[in-house]
């Protein structure tokens, strides 16, 4: 265990990177989920088609492959564009941190789309009609009527999505983000103690997942407090 102590602050920094990726990706996930769900529920056949293609493709492709497509694909595109402007450019890429955060948000966003769609459908139609009768604009209806009522319905499933999100951050070492798997990999080459090092990684992830589970449980109590009082 002595070796772990030496690497403790490296793991701490790595854990901080995991958290940063998690929160950035979480925001994007919610955005993709809301856009996707709105598209799936919209009257436009084109929007529905795009949203369906998005969820089908992203839920059927391995996370690792999505990550590689986003990172290396964007690098090839950006390098190509940069070469048009300045032929001496060799390689341009999105920083791995952002490419990785985006990639995992695309993946989990596809699952969130389905969850949010179901939750929006769970909001009583009468609420939306009442909002329209009161003269609220569609945007007002969305933010003041539909959103506040759907999130508590989405919460249990969304808790699982958050767990997927944090676990998917482990993939980012593949494109060189210096998170905890990356730290463990480096520590292993120095100390030759792979089991110990990856066990530390597992424990850190288990800690994060436990915090998420607990937080979601607390939020669920908060979200359903009006039902509590009615009893």
């Amino acid at each position: 265990m002595g070796v772990v102590v030496e690497w403790l602050d490296a793991f701490l920094w790595g854990a901080l990177v995991v958290l940063r990726v998690f929160f950035v990706a979480l925001i994007f996930t919610v955005v993709w989920g809301l856009i996707g769900a709105s598209a799936k529920l919209s009257d436009s056949a084109i929007a529905r088609g795009i949203a369906n293609a998005y969820t089908t493709v992203l839920r059927g492709t391995p996370e690792l492959l999505v990550l590689l497509i986003v990172y290396f694909g964007s690098a090839v595109t950006l390098t190509g564009i940069a070469k048009l402007v300045d032929p001496s450019v060799k390689f341009v890429h999105i920083p791995p941190f952002w490419a990785g955060s985006l990639a995992i948000s695309f993946i989990v966003g596809a699952y969130a789309t389905e969850t949010f769609r179901g939750a929006f459908l769970g909001v009583d139609r009468g609420q939306v009609e009442a909002a329209r009768a009161l003269g609220l604009t569609p945007a007002q209806t969305f933010f003041y009527v539909r959103l506040p009522q759907m999130w508590r319905l989405a919460l249990p499933a969304f808790g699982n999505h958050m767990n997927s999100l944090i676990k998917d951050t482990a993939l980012l070492s593949v494109i060189g983000v210096e998170e905890i798997v990356y730290v463990a990999d480096r520590a292993t080459t120095m100390t030759n103690k792979p089991f110990t090092m990856y066990l530390v990684v597992a424990i850190i992830y288990l800690g994060f997942v436990s915090v998420i589970i607990k937080t979601v449980a607390v939020l669920e109590v908060y979200a359903n407090r009006h039902l509590d009082r009615a009893r």
Binding site: N163, K167, V201, V209, S210
Partner: peptide, 8 residues
Amino acid sequence: RGTPMLVQ
């Protein structure tokens, strides 16, 4: 279920 499959 609480740890990434990659780490396992």
